[in-house]
């Protein structure tokens, strides 16, 4: 049974991160996903301290707040003339450091250890069950991720055209009256939710891999946005299954193996993709060069 719950949890992480990751990659703000995944940590610790539990809605809300705060601060510094990558670096490391201090100060009260925060503990998801009147409803992580996935799918589904236009041509979006800033913060809110729900399972560092790697792999495999989202989820789910299998054989970290599998799938797409892959591009260039030479010879 534990296999089932681990695979389901991993797949839900892949779906949540895969959808929002596509928009991060297309808007070339992948590193903002990295920043958010780290800087929600103080929010989570503060929520632990207030609510005393590690899976409450309070936690989600606090993480959302810190995610938006991160986005806002990065934007504020950028507009004031600080370089974009520098402002991302400043904001997320400073907030993450506050989180580290809080964990070390209050570790005993919140039953948190830094390893779990950084690397996750997907192997234990089926021990932390949600019980209603003594009846087990399954792991809490699965419920949290399930709700997050529904919210993400609903918001992106409802405002698909706005998210798409804001990613492709924000100037036109603004010109026709789409509130570009609102949709930016909405996306960042979704990223924060995906991050904090995935956090317990794969940890603060590896969740970035689930946000960026499957989306980047999908980018290499298709020319349509809808298909890119589907493929991003599929790559994430495939990585979960392959990674979990590998972790059993190697007796190694599950989350580590999952993200590693995603990395391998990316490399495979990078080399072998029929449209964007390195090999097919080389072959096309060689063919083109041969044709040009042949035509040149004929012309002479």
């Amino acid at each position: 049974m534990s296999d089932f719950w681990i695979l389901l949890t991993g797949s839900l992480v892949a779906a949540c991160c895969g959808i929002v990751g596509v928009f991060l990659v297309l808007r070339k703000i992948a590193m903002i996903g990295d920043a958010i995944s780290h800087s929600v940590m103080p929010g989570i610790v503060i929520a632990f301290l207030i609510s005393g539990t590690r899976d409450s809605l309070v936690m989600m809300f606090a993480a959302l707040l810190f995610g938006l705060l991160t986005t806002f601060l990065i934007g504020l510094f950028q507009r004031s003339g600080i370089q974009s990558d520098a402002s991302i670096g400043v904001v997320f490391t400073a907030l993450f450091a506050i989180g580290v201090i809080l964990v070390s100060l209050f570790a005993r009260q919140v039953h948190l250890d830094q390893d779990a925060i950084l690397y996750g503990e997907i192997a234990f998801v089926h021990w932390n069950l949600w019980e209603v009147g003594g009846v087990s409803m399954g792991p809490k992580a699965v419920w949290l991720l399930g709700v997050t996935l529904i919210v993400i799918a609903a918001v992106i589904g409802l405002f698909y055209k706005q998210f798409k236009l804001c990613a492709f041509d924000p100037a036109l979006a603004a010109a026709i009256g789409i509130p570009v800033a609102l949709f930016h913060y909405m996306l960042m809110g979704l990223v924060s939710m995906a991050t904090v729900s995935s956090f317990e399972s794969v940890g603060a560092i590896l969740v970035v891999g689930m946000l960026i790697i499957p989306a980047s792999t999908a980018y290499l495999l298709t020319d349509r946005l809808g298909m890119m989202i589907s493929l991003s989820i599929a790559v994430g789910v495939a990585s979960t299954f392959a990674g979990y299998g590998a972790s059993i054989i190697l007796d190694a970290s599950i989350a580590g193996c999952i993200v590693c599998a995603a990395g391998l799938l990316f490399v495979a797409a990078f080399l072998l993709s029929p449209s964007h892959g390195l090999i097919s591009r080389r072959l096309r260039q060689r063919k083109l060069a041969a044709e040009t030479t042949a035509n040149g010879a004929r012309a002479v």
Binding site: L26, D169, R224
Partner: peptide
């Protein structure tokens, strides 16, 4: 001003012009 590597086709880009009145 836009990234032409965006995963979309010509018709789809033209359709974006209808988003305002939709």
């Amino acid at each position: 001003s836009v990234d032409w590597d965006f995963p979309t086709n010509a018709l789809d880009v033209v359709l974006m012009g209808t988003y305002g009145r939709l």
